[in-house]
Computed example of a mutant assay.
Amino acid sequence: MVALITIVTLAMIFNFTNGFHDAANAIATSVSTRALTLPVALGVAAVGNLVGSFFGAAVAATVGKGIIDLPVGSSSLLVVGAALVGAITWNLITWWKGLPSSSSHALIGGMVGAALAAGVSVIWGGVIEKVLIPMVVSPFAGFALAYLFMLAIMWGFRRANPAKVGRGFRVAQTVSATAMAFGHGMQDAAKTMGIVVLALVVAGKHEGPDIPIWVYFLTAGVLAAGTATGGKRIMKTLGTKIIELDPPQGFAAEATASSVLYVASIGFGAPVSTTHVISSAIMGAGATRRMSAVRWGVAGQMMQAWVSTFPAAGIVGALAYWAGSLVF
């Protein structure tokens, strides 16, 4: 029982780091365009994450039973714990560097690395279909949709007064930021719920993929608390370092990114990266001004972090398992 409590605690630590690490995903554009003040934006993100978490059961099922195949037993709890250590470590490193990397891929990378170190079966079909393919497709979708949506906005409001358009889209960003926060909750809270259910199952305390109601409330509450602490380092990268956005661009980025998250969550149960999607959407919306307006050097640094997240978290997860096996 002590081991299970330890794993659930680790899951909540990861969940909390996910909140402050990825809070910028939902609010960076709204804050940078001055559509929302930082305190209000953090509140919107926290509430959106809280509510959205109750609609992520399909993603939770993928994480809980579609990535690795763990037998019931204490050794399996060590695998789950090592996976969480890998994810938490990478989250903290990238947060410190101000790089908007993916908490989702950090968690799944940690799971795969710990499983391989333990000699446990990895469900490669699930990893490829539910993780790797969406990891590649979702950023391209975010960029292309935001670019096209922004072009439509520019055409539709081409004769409108720019000042009035700006004020209108600042109001609209309240809605799009809320939608983005809701989508983040559907994705990222669900991943933590999935890992908690996996721990309960291998500990022999739960059967099946259903999520106990206390897991919903605990995960949602901790994620909301983490979100409320903010993520100013990453927010600066997303909100200003990639490109200076105006309100219409901010709205286009948030609206298209949240749409991609909804389709991935509800349609496919795929644990995609909210970071990848919103970052790409910001680039797509900004590129309508001109391609050179996007600071591609910063974007390149972000992409390096994206590519390295899965293997880096996997390596830390494997090392954590080996260290834990020596102690336990």
Rank of each mutant, 00 (worst) to 15 (best):
Met111Phe: 13
Pro71Gln: 11
Lys97Glu: 13
Glu254Trp: 08
Leu77Tyr: 00
Val263Phe: 12
Arg233Thr: 11
Ala225Pro: 06
Phe328Gln: 14
Pro247His: 09
Gly267Asp: 12
Ser265Met: 06
Tyr147Cys: 11
Ala312Phe: 11
Val196Asn: 03
Leu70Arg: 02
Trp296Asn: 05
Lys97Phe: 12
Gly314Ser: 12
Lys241Glu: 14
Met302Ile: 15
Thr274Tyr: 01
Thr227Ser: 03
Gly221Ile: 10
Gly284Ile: 01
Ala179Arg: 11
Ala255Thr: 13
Ala106Val: 05
Ser265Thr: 15
Pro248Lys: 01
Leu261Asn: 09
Phe310Ser: 10
Asp246Glu: 14
Gly317Thr: 10
Trp90Glu: 05
Ser76Phe: 10
Ile68Phe: 00
Gly48Ile: 12
Gln249Tyr: 03
Lys232Tyr: 12
Thr274Phe: 04
Trp90Phe: 09
Ala141Gln: 02
Thr309Glu: 13
Pro39Phe: 06
Ile213Arg: 15
Phe149Pro: 01
Leu42Phe: 01
Phe217Ser: 05
Ser265Pro: 08
Leu200Ser: 05
Phe157Tyr: 13
Leu36Ala: 14
Phe157Arg: 08
Leu132Gly: 01
Asn18Met: 08
Thr6Gly: 15
Thr9Met: 15
Ala264His: 00
Thr229Leu: 14
Ala82Val: 03
Leu70Met: 07
Ala299Gln: 07
Ser308Pro: 00
Val316Trp: 03
His184Met: 06
Val79Arg: 03
Gln301Phe: 05
Leu151Met: 14
Phe217Lys: 04
Leu36Asp: 06
Gly43Arg: 05
Ala225Cys: 12
Phe182Tyr: 09
